[in-house]
Structure formats: structure tokens, C-alpha cells
């Protein structure tokens, strides 16, 4: 079991989990900078408590909790920003690195998934959490987590099927 105790450890661990964590945080905030703030706070908290990196579920729980606090705290600001974005069609940083139009379409389909399905997909695909871990993060049963995942994949598949 690897511990995050040493200085270099955290860097290698963070490099590994950061893209998935940021993607997870982006579900609640539109700005990449806000997502980075959330991930930073969660990761530092995780490291300070000397948790093992294998307990990734705790890290996602922390990100989720901090993100929800963040949007509660900044709900007014978020509304203002959402209004400004809709009015000016402001550029929002992409959450994925696209290679072709299919991938772009897939990313857009992910964006319109219901939040409860999207978070399960993000944790399962890009963070490789088990359904048991996902259930722990969300406070639901494993069956519920698995169902949400299946519904999400079905919706994505339908979106991408040629008509």
C-alpha cells in the first residue's frame, strides 16, 4: 500500500488522478479554474490526513462535498455567470481533448446526461472506481450505481447511433 507521505509521492499520485478528478469536479462548475480550486482543496485535505491513494473513494467524496459547498456558497455568482454565458455565448474550456468529430459528439452527449448518471460514468470510466466505491461516494446502493451507469451508456449509445 502506497502512502502519500513523501513529497515526490504526491506528485506522481496527483499526476495519475488529476485529469479524472478535474473531470469529476467539472460536473458542478463550468470554469476549469473553479474545478482546479476544488480539486486542489480536496487533494490537499486528502494528503494532509495521510490517506492511502488506494482509498480513492475518499478523494472523490471530498471533491463532491467541496464542489457542492462551492456551488451553494457561490450560487448567486454562478447564476450571474450562467446568465452572462448564455448572453454572450462565452467560451467554456473543453473537458476533453478531442481527436475527431465522433469524440466531440460523444463529449457533447456526456454533457447532456443527467448529473446522477454522468457522475457515475466519470467515476467508472476515467477514474476506474468500482461500483462499490462509487456507491460509497454517492451514498447509494451498488445496484443503483450500476443501474445509473447502464442507463447512461444506453443513452450515449443511442445518441451516437446513425439515424
Amino acid at each position: 500500500m502506497q502512502n502519500l507521505a513523501s513529497h515526490e509521492d504526491w506528485k506522481s499520485c496527483f499526476s495519475e488522478v488529476a485529469p479524472g478528478l478535474l473531470l469529476f469536479a467539472r460536473q458542478w462548475v463550468q470554469s476549469a479554474a473553479d474545478a482546479e480550486d476544488i480539486v486542489q482543496e480536496a487533494f490537499v485535505k486528502f494528503w494532509r490526513r495521510n490517506h492511502k491513494i488506494e482509498n480513492r473513494a475518499l478523494l472523490y467524496t471530498a471533491v463532491r462535498s467541496i464542489a457542492l459547498d462551492f456551488i451553494r456558497r457561490d450560487s448567486r455568482r454562478a447564476r450571474r455567470e450562467a446568465g452572462a454565458i448564455s448572453e454572450t455565448d462565452e467560451f467554456i474550456e473543453p473537458q476533453f481533448e478531442f481527436e475527431d468529430d465522433t469524440q466531440r459528439a460523444l463529449a457533447e452527449a456526456i454533457d447532456v446526461l443527467p448529473c446522477e448518471q454522468r457522475e457515475v460514468v466519470v467515476m467508472k470510466i476515467w477514474n476506474e472506481l468500482t461500483f462499490a466505491e462509487i456507491a460509497g461516494v454517492l451514498g447509494v446502493s451498488q445496484n443503483t450505481a450500476a443501474s445509473r451507469y447502464r442507463y447512461a451508456l444506453a443513452a450515449l449509445r443511442n445518441t451516437l447511433q446513425p439515424r
Binding site: A18, V39, E97
Partner: peptide
Amino acid sequence: FSEIENELRKLRPAQPSPILFERI
């Protein structure tokens, strides 16, 4: 769902900014 799962795995999430490492 294996096909759609494979498609999803090909999508790479955006990388964190180098500043984030410095901040952490």
C-alpha cells in the same frame, strides 16, 4: 456496452494546468 465503453475510454480528459501543481 463494451463498444461504447471503449469509445468513452478513448476520450482523454483535459490535463490540469501546470499552475495547479505549483499551487498544490
